[in-house]
Nucleic acid binder design. Structure first.
Lengths: 189, 189
DNA sequence: TAATACTGAACGAACATTCAATCTAGTTGA
DNA sequence: TCAACTAGATTGAATGTTCGTTCAGTATTA
């Protein structure tokens, strides 16, 4: 029972490794099979096709990420602290997982991406959105539409982690704190 | 002489249209030829191959964008006004040109992208970087590394324009001004 | 008449996908 | 206990298609 899940995950992991190295168009199914140590045919036992494999990989990573964010949520803290903590967690997570973050960036900008895909995984991100909503109700942060808040905080985090992974920037703990300060200044009331 | 430039540009424009619809991997050379109204072979007269075509398209768009930014630069204004103006110009430009911005986003996240590509076009962005540098020297904005300043301002602009184009958000003139305010709060000293 | 622009059929490589055959592990029945 | 059976897992060669690229030949321009 565990073994069949293992093989599915081995295929997903192999896909992740190849895509962040070669992109979608450089990732052939035969190469995924080789990288995962399985035969080419078996991929179609676990996935409907290449598109489905990509979609499932996205969901798999998004789910892992969402669970991790939920874990590190401390709802006893004041909202300001919660938001700042969450930003720190995100930046550090992206830095520690360049393969994952590279893939997410590529996927969300590709024609594979559609908003329906996020429906299943969006539940994991509820606490995060609720956090922003409550902060808006309490007039702690500005009353921007949700995508604007995201752009000013979460997207900054992914953008910086990307540059860090590419070697354009060295994100030290001190600099991360300063970036969190800056994001907070952007959204605070 | 003009005619050969016209055909080159027709090919670039056709490539742009197809990529923002189908992505890199869904954009075949034969389809580019059809879309541009030329034969398949002639593309290889103007470009060394598919990779070169993509690189040249990136440079072409970056150059157009850079020239436009330079035009709208008013160096008689105080630095704060200059930076805010520039952000407004960027956001509006991206919104008005969804094909271009979608392509830039996709390309810079793809394995095609390498930092050497930007060398040729980076000259057009000098005034912009100089503007930030001077503001840092005059202690008007925080002394962040250049990629951090970019993430907190230009990347926010592209990220929002993307969401606007995708229909997740309606960027009114009023909201754009508020976003510029927020970006400014993030970087100001 | 020479150089350059252009065509489109042709080619080989790469690719996603299929499938008949084989293997594996779990279940049944005597 | 074990042979027979079965269903799912797995293989990898084969298939048909698509794609990037080439090139011999034709048109255009100066």
């Amino acid at each position: 029972m565990d073994q069949i899940e293992d093989k599915r995950i081995a295929i997903l992991d192999a896909t992740l490794r190849l895509i962040s190295k070669n992109g979608f168009h450089g990732t052939a199914m035969s190469k995924v099979a080789k990288e995962a140590g399985v035969s080419a045919g078996i991929i179609y036992h676990y996935f409907a096709g290449k598109d489905d494999l990509m979609d499932e990989l996205y969901k798999y990573i998004k789910r892992k990420f969402g669970l991790m964010i939920n874990e590190s949520f401390d709802q006893t803290q004041p909202l300001k602290i919660q938001i700042r903590q969450m930003l720190g967690v995100m930046i550090r997570y992206y830095i520690q997982r360049p393969l994952e973050s590279t893939f997410l960036e590529q996927y969300t900008r590709s024609p594979y991406y559609n908003s329906e895909i996020d429906l299943e995984t969006s539940q994991y991100y509820m606490p995060l959105l609720k956090c922003f909503q409550q902060a808006q109700q309490e007039m702690i942060i500005k009353d921007f539409p949700e995508p604007v808040v995201t752009a000013l905080t979460l997207d900054v985090a992914t953008s910086l982690a990307q540059r860090h992974a590419a070697g354009f920037l060295n994100l030290t703990d001190e600099l991360i704190e300063q970036v969190i300060d800056a994001c907070w200044e952007a959204i605070r009331q």
